[in-house]
Amino acid sequence: MMTAFGAAMAWVEGSGVAIAIRESLLLTAALSAFHLIGATLVGGGALLGGLRIGGVLFPDQAMADVVRPAGRAILLGLSISIVTGALLFSPRASMAVANGFFQLKMGLLVAAAACHAILHSRRWHSEDQASGFLGLARSMLYIAVILAGSAYILLE
């Protein structure tokens, strides 16, 4: 018997958008290409922000002057990646949710987004240890998301 979750995944896979993507190799390729552009923005922002928080890059610049643009790059990259990722997910929803690397990627993404939201609410008013720890964790989590995403694509 099909569970409600299984039925939802089957509905997603049967939607018009999913069918259009499944039947067009070029559309799938274009979505995947923009997904990678988004991931590059996320990775670049995460690296810059993480290296500044770790005191490796631009230690002479105010934390916010580096971490804020890095955070904006991450948000732009995430917006692109989430939209394209959701579209790429739709034709193979059932298979994706059963894949261990996909589950890991989503778990890491939720954790990274939680760090991002907490940091945003703190607005980097102070360069305290908690903000530093969260910023570093956010950077490492986003890079781990990219690694898990690569593993999912290559080993599924």
């Binding site: 990775g43 670049g44 922002g45 790059a73 290559l154």
Partner: peptide, 18 residues
Amino acid sequence: VVAIHILGLTLSVGMVLW
């Protein structure tokens, strides 16, 4: 090799962007 290529891409293009 593809994973190394993607990591290299993220590091290179992601950083040169700044």
